[in-house]
């Protein structure tokens, strides 16, 4: 069908079009990336002498850690109980307090100055890793679960508050107008037209936050804010590796369990 002579006009070679069309940009980015890797590796202070001792140390730690020892089960239980309590109370406080902050940080229902304050609180509490917040609270109110509760409350406000504020900004505005048309005041509008729309989300978020607080409560203890983290830190500090590994195993088990439960409950609600 095709006459043979037209075939000679066809291109005879083909190369895959490169990912970045401009060759200067393409090779420039590549060189930049390699240069960065070299610079970063070169500038970091590695203590090779100490690192080279690592393997025998690892062997000693793991042989000391196996089998994990559950002898001090009482201590382990006390630590976990405290972690639970911290997580529960912080979730409750955090979820309740996140509502006013979310209202403040929602552009569509908060006046501008209030909005800026609300956003700032949420951004700041989200910028800091809970462990940094914990170390500050420990410095302020002393060692113990109180610092842990305060830390995770702030953490929850940041996380739940942000998502909730986004949810409020996306509500069906018609309901708010209807309430205003009926002569409702600001608070009445909030309670009848805004909160019902965000409530289902809030319940799901609370479950998620409880799970996430439980995870975080295990680590804030490392800097002295109560719970199982402190027990773990002590075990590591005293070279009780068999007890430390026992704690780690239980932490993993509890986290898996809590993730499973929280996922199941959220599926039921949504």
């Amino acid at each position: 069908m095709t006459p043979p002579d037209t075939q000679s006009s066809l291109p005879r070679t083909w190369k895959k079009p490169p990912f970045i069309a401009n060759p200067l940009l393409r090779y420039g980015l590549l060189i930049l990336a390699v240069a960065y890797l070299v610079w970063a590796f070169g500038s970091l202070p590695f203590n090779w002498a100490r690192i080279s001792e690592g393997l025998p140390r690892a062997a000693r730690i793991f042989s000391g850690g196996f089998p994990p020892s559950f002898e001090r089960f009482g201590l382990l239980l006390t630590g976990f109980k405290e972690s639970f309590q911290i997580a529960i109370l912080a979730t409750l406080l955090g979820v309740l307090l996140s509502i006013p902050f979310a209202v403040m940080a929602a552009r569509n229902i908060a006046p501008l100055p209030i909005y800026l304050i609300g956003r700032a609180v949420i951004i700041i509490s989200r910028s800091f890793h809970p462990v940094i917040v914990a170390i500050l609270f420990v410095a302020a109110v002393g060692f113990g679960p109180l610092a842990g509760i305060l830390t995770l409350t702030l953490y929850s406000i940041g996380f739940v508050g942000k998502l909730l504020a986004e949810e409020i900004e996306e509500i069906d505005w018609g309901q708010v107008e209807a309430m205003r048309a009926a002569g409702a005041g600001y608070l009445a509008t909030l309670f009848y037209a805004v909160f019902p729309q965000i409530l289902p989300r809030q319940v799901g978020l609370s479950m998620y936050q409880l799970d996430s607080n439980l995870r975080a409560s295990a680590v804030v203890g490392i800097v002295g804010a109560g719970g199982i983290g402190g027990t773990l830190m002590n075990a590591f500090g005293r070279y009780d590796y068999d007890f430390a590994f026992a704690i780690l195993l239980i932490i993993i088990a509890v986290i898996l369990l809590s993730e499973g439960i929280s996922g199941w409950v959220r599926k039921k609600i949504w």
């Binding site: 095709t2 075939q7 190369k15």
Partner: peptide, 22 residues
């Protein structure tokens, strides 16, 4: 690496031309 033999690439162009998608 997408380095196909020359014959394959030529065949591809011929067939694509034949169906009108070259």
């Amino acid at each position: 690496s997408r380095r196909y033999p020359q014959a394959d690439i030529e065949r591809a162009f011929v067939l694509m031309e034949r169906v009108g998608i070259a």
